[in-house]
Nucleic acid binder design. Structure first.
Lengths: 213, 213
DNA sequence: CATTGTGAACTCATTCACAGCG
DNA sequence: CGCTGTGAATGAGTTCACAATG
């Protein structure tokens, strides 16, 4: 592997945003885009865009800008979005079924191949995504058989740690955790948290402390 | 207002996490907690905990630690969680209705007092949260009459900007945006984004680039 | 005397400014 | 000539280390 000079985590976040914006630009018929324009669209500075892209190579043409299609492909490569990733969702309650039904995963190229819940009444029922609901006890073996790459936790906080442990046992080493709690996993397992209760608290703080945005 | 020496944004995020952990500690019967223990529970360093709290004053007792109840109250004060905040949710599709039904807002002390959708077929129907669905065209006036403090956007990306504009018109200056797009608002309006599609991309990146966690 | 509170050192991230180049 | 690519400068955030103290 190349001598990667420490990429800021925030850079990856922005790469994802650039990528999505490039899709829109392509859809709108643009072929070229400058760092200034892309930056404006993504609400960052032009220097930031160039620096972020610079970590991975020179994708632009001096005096012209970036090729919308080409840059998209490059970012997709960096983020490994070409491969199809298999997901398993655990906790088919309000949020879990909403995510499955919405098709947001499929829309972004992620393949939801399994759904789990601990409620026996739900087990066996098909989800709108087509996959049947299995019992969580089957999780460790099922995710291995199905080659699940990423686990999605949409259970209440009280069950999240247990589910995370199950994923670890099933050798799933990436988890998207929607539950409002932190989970503890070994170093080999990556976790990203999506915790809107924290965001609510941040808004109340910012609203009351008149922070200049 | 006091001479606040620039609080890191991440500090506010952690304060919210500490607060939630303190609730659990209280529930488990603890009265005292050290920065080391709280840090371990929240997966941060003890110095970080002390520094974060230090921005707002000395809440601890040297040689002993922090009072679980007292510190909770202090953080609630800082984050302004004592006041009841009024929310309005726009986009009563899969995600919107899941959020309303789950009661996650109410559980954290937030009061959802309005729901909006653009589909006439949904308008008038009551949500499980008790509030009826109104048409989005009523939004600017309704949110003002109802004194909505924060707007929650759970529409598809294509509608998010338009809804944000409506909130701004209705003088709602805090928005929690669940749609996978960035919205543009004037400086007076605060926005927090919850975009799990980005988190998915981050996981694929991290999975393929063997970053040491 | 264990643990907080905090300046100082350090690490990480962003912005600046301009050389490099199509 | 215009815009990218990038080292250097600045700024923000975290960790260190230890003095302060109930």
């Amino acid at each position: 592997m190349v001598k990667t000079k420490r990429i800021p985590k925030a850079t990856i976040t922005r790469l994802s945003i650039y990528h999505r914006q490039l899709e829109l630009l392509e859809f709108d018929g643009y072929r070229q885009v400058s760092s200034e324009k892309l930056a404006w669209l993504c609400q960052v500075s032009p220097a930031q865009v160039r620096k972020d892209l610079g970590y991975f190579g020179g994708f632009g043409v001096r005096g012209v800008g970036y090729d919308v299609i080409e840059l998209q492909a490059q970012i997709r490569e960096i983020l490994a979005l070409n491969k199809v990733w298999n997901l398993a969702v655990v906790g088919i309650g309000n949020l879990g079924s909403a995510l499955l039904r919405s098709g947001s995963f499929a829309m972004r190229g992620f393949n939801c191949i399994a759904a789990f819940d601990k409620d026996p009444a739900k087990v066996g029922k098909p989800t709108s995504a087509g996959v049947p609901i299995r019992h969580v006890d089957e999780l460790p073996t099922a995710v291995r058989d199905l080659q699940v790459d990423m686990g999605v936790i949409t259970t209440p906080a009280s069950a999240a740690q247990w589910v995370a442990d199950m994923f670890v046992r099933g050798k799933v080493n990436a988890i998207l955790n929607f539950s409002p709690t932190r989970i503890y996993v070994p170093d080999c397992c990556l976790v990203e948290n999506i915790d809107f209760t924290i965001k609510l608290d941040i808004l109340t703080y910012r609203l009351t402390h008149g922070s200049a945005n």
